[in-house]
Nucleic acid binder design. Structure first.
Length: 478
RNA sequence: GACCCUAUGGUCUAGCGGUUAGGACACCACCCUUUCACGGUGAUAACCCGGGUUCGAGUCCCGGUAGGGUCGCCA
């Protein structure tokens, strides 16, 4: 009734959204049940992960239930491995589900009493429901397939994010609105199984990507054909590449699993994903997930697609890395170094810890560690000739020699001593510390940036530091 | 082609009829500093276009344009 006859619904959109919000409040008198229903394609798309996140957030916000359902109808490309990718991804993000599979085995018992939670194990249910449709005259056979008898008129979709949408028929639908629900090979199609499962699993809110918005007309018709009321819909905008194109499987960062591999923290990824579609009140951006749960709601979700900004993610990740305790940082850093083959069995745990401690709050992701701290764990430094040309002059060689001599006399090889010796020497020469510090760092780490120079030398130890300086000077004389 | 959604700096956004259009990331400069980073200060940078409504429009309406989505016996 809010929609005026002449199609001027745009004029009253503001009002419609308000009404939608209001209705959402009323709907909460029933327990919210939402679901994430991915297809096991072998990877978890970052957009899919955010869809899962929004569903999970809404369930936690409302005290409802979050259900995981595997849409493995296309069994040709399904495997337990592909399902594990999904389960592992959700677990890494910390999105726990109240119902659904607990492992990648479709025949293993899941959690919840509305199963099976694998569509591949629900075929009888679908066929039975199709018979129901046929008996009602809502479905019929044609060309070996089963078609659904779709009404030939526009559909009103009352979406909690987009607002009230009047979806007209496309030209194709105007010619023939009916669509296939069972293929001629006997397999049920997505629209059918999706609706039946949502119906039987008591889903109250469908939160999914906007790419499903126009398909929703089909789904609503199906629900009505079953004599049921359709759930509330909330279509969320898509995540695009940095250049605005659609993010597909091959694109950088499209797969969720690249984020743990690249050394990102799950809290950071969660925070970044939620910001791409929702904004907390009060000009805040970095906020713990508990806080997000408290504030999150559907009507405030953005309407427009967003581009994925890797720089922003790095920044957010850095903020979370700074909050890590030294123990947590060292532990995660150690794992990264191990997985990249920087460490081996003979790496001294105490040395590794001391080395990593000098890197805390210095890198934005754990994946930077192998480069950043690599000099600690190698016997042969690789010097960049361009860097040497830029940083190392002939006079630097003499300065380093003298510095090396003074360091060789140090008994207590600790940062404070190394610092005061260097500064004293610089003062004697009447120069700033730069001309000493830069060549020294280059000689000892083969890099122009890194952890605190004095602390890193302390960790490295007198013998290694002196050796590196000497061999560096000798090499440059060639 | 038909249908649907969207449109504020490079990116993510705040804004809900009257603002010097706010913040974050990125970028640049300077300060701090043993490098990098952090921190601090500052700079550059935006309401897609055209009509309307209104005393007044980023904000409401219409139309373009652009981007995205859907139109499968894919999901």
């Amino acid at each position: 009734m809010l929609l005026e006859e002449d199609g001027r619904e745009g004029r009253i959109r503001g009002k419609v959204r308000f009404e939608s919000c209001h209705r959402a409040e009323i709907d909460r008198m029933d327990k919210v049940r939402v679901r994430f229903a991915p297809s096991p394609t072998g990877y978890l798309h970052i957009g899919g992960a955010r869809t899962a996140l929004f569903n999970w957030l809404y369930a936690r916000h409302t005290g409802g239930e979050f259900i995981l359902r595997i849409e493995d109808t296309d069994d040709a490309r399904n495997s337990q491995e592909a399902i594990d990718v999904i389960l592992d991804g959700l677990r890494w993000l910390g999105l726990d589900w109240d119902e659904g599979p607990m492992s990648g085995d479709p025949d293993a018992p899941g959690k919840g009493d509305k199963g099976p939670y694998f569509q591949s194990r629900r075929k009888e249910i679908y066929l039975q429901k199709v018979e129901e449709l046929k008996s009602k005259g809502m479905a019929y056979d044609r060309d070996g397939a089963v078609y659904f008898r779709m009404k030939k008129e526009a559909t009103i979709i009352d979406d909690m994010v987009v607002g009230k949408v009047r979806r007209e028929l496309t030209d194709r639908e105007a010619a023939d609105p009916d669509f296939v629900i069972i293929r001629s090979d006997g397999k049920p199609v997505f629209h059918l199984v999706n609706v039946i499962d949502d119906l039987l699993m008591g889903i109250t809110h469908v939160i999914r990507g906007e790419d499903h918005l126009t398909n929703t007309a089909k789904h609503i018709a199906l629900f009505e054909a079953f004599g049921a009321q359709a759930p509330r819909y909330a279509h969320i905008p898509l995540i695009l590449n940095a250049d605005g194109s659609k993010m597909s499987k091959r694109d950088e960062g499209a797969s969720l699993m690249t984020y743990p591999q690249m050394g990102y923290l799950p809290q950071a990824v969660i925070n970044q994903l939620v910001l791409l579609g929702w904004t907390p009140k009060g000009n805040r951006e970095i906020l713990p997930v508990e806080e997000i749960i408290k504030e999150f709601d559907l009507p405030q979700i953005h309407r427009a697609n967003a581009r994925f900004d890797m720089n922003k993610l790095k920044h957010i990740n850095y903020e979370y890395m700074r909050k890590l305790s030294m123990e947590e940082f060292v532990e995660k850093g150690r794992k990264m170094l191990e997985s990249r083959g920087v460490l081996n069995e003979k790496s001294d745990p105490v040395f590794v810890q001391k080395a990593l401690e000098t890197c805390k709050d210095k890198v934005k992701t754990f994946a930077e560690l192998p480069d950043y701290a690599g000099f600690y764990f190698t016997d042969v430094l690789k010097y960049d000739t361009e860097l040497i040309k830029a940083e190392f002059t002939s006079e630097a060689s003499n300065l380093l020699k003298e510095l090396c001599r003074r360091y060789s006399e140090v008994e207590d090889f600790v940062a404070a001593n190394l610092e005061s010796i260097l500064k004293t020497y610089a003062k004697e020469l009447g120069i700033k510390v730069g001309p000493l510090v830069h060549p020294l760092r280059l000689a000892v780490t083969a890099s122009k940036s890194g952890p605190s120079l004095y602390h890193l030398m302390e960790v490295l130890g007198k013998q290694i530091v002196l050796n590196r300086i000497n061999s560096f000077i000798n090499n440059q004389l060639d």
